[in-house]
Nucleic acid binder design. Structure first.
Lengths: 157, 157
DNA sequence: TTAGCTGCAAAAGGTTTGCAAATTA
DNA sequence: TAATTTGCAAACCTTTTGCAGCTAA
């Protein structure tokens, strides 16, 4: 049932179609999502929104993100120890996060097909590969021999 | 370098071998880990510890868990939206969490070998499959047709 | 003795919630 | 009008930190 709208109006149309209401706050959140990098935290979205709409409260951002996920146009991913990150629903793909330097690697969409197949046949488990990130060490850190220890990279100090 | 001790004394021996000190608090935390289910949150550990050692503060639990991870006898996994869960270091295996009912499925250790191989050859990425859980729907929920919506199972209300 | 632990209290994120006022459909 | 949505403030939960005293080695 997921769509992949590319404009704020598209997204808002879906929201309205599902009985949600179109408001300035929501448009602002959606635009922040459209303008953002691949992975944006709720806090970053709130900051972007605040730039043009200082009135919009963080709680509204959270509630809007929740609604957008219900509608199916937004997804969140747990990239690491920090906060969740959000992005517009995209063609299925997975993320792999380096536990040393925090780099996010995009994993080809079909890389988990075999695993998904096996989980389904052996355990009846239907994999949703987008919801959680894989963890490990990126090529650079493997080369350097760097190790994560117990204090992996944090987004902020 | 990871070992898999099965008694508190074994674990404490490793701690001492690494320059750590053996204390009542640490023994209590380790015993809570030994007694616990597969996946235990820091809070649950604190509760167990408090039963016999009311003096032990939550912060001590966290610091002890940190130390035990440095030593390599404890691991933590992000099972879902909630807090991290800890367990004694075990032979490598992965967890798959049902986003509907929260059931944790143990995934055979070699199930991710193919993926790991591919990540390594294509991206140079060294997968650490134990650190994050996979997400999806378990056999039961697939059968029922249940869907996660935006409010997946929580561990506590 | 001395480096490492501990308890305590307080703070730091990240996220949620109750409520009354404002707003959309 | 009726149901949603919002802002605000405050709470909540998990985890971290500063510090002074205690303790294992």
């Amino acid at each position: 049932m997921n769509v992949t709208p590319r404009t704020a109006d598209d997204v808002l149309a879906v929201v309205r179609a599902r009985g949600g209401r179109v408001t300035a706050s929501r448009r602002a959140v959606i635009e922040a999502l459209l303008a953002g990098e691949h992975h944006v935290t709720a806090d970053e979205i709130a900051a972007r929104v605040a730039a043009s709409h200082p009135e919009v409260h963080r709680s509204t951002v959270y509630r809007t993100l929740e609604r957008l996920q219900e509608v199916g146009v937004v997804t969140h991913v747990h990239l690491g120890h920090g906060p969740s990150t959000f992005h517009l629903a995209d063609p299925p793909h997975t993320h792999a996060v380096c536990s040393v330097c925090g780099t996010v690697v995009e994993v080809p969409g079909d890389a988990l097909d075999g695993l998904a197949e096996r989980l389904r046949s052996e355990l009846g488990f239907e994999l949703a590969a987008q919801h959680f990130a894989l963890s490990g060490r990126c090529a650079a850190c493997v080369a350097t021999g760097a190790s994560a220890g117990s204090a992996p990279a944090r987004s902020s100090g």
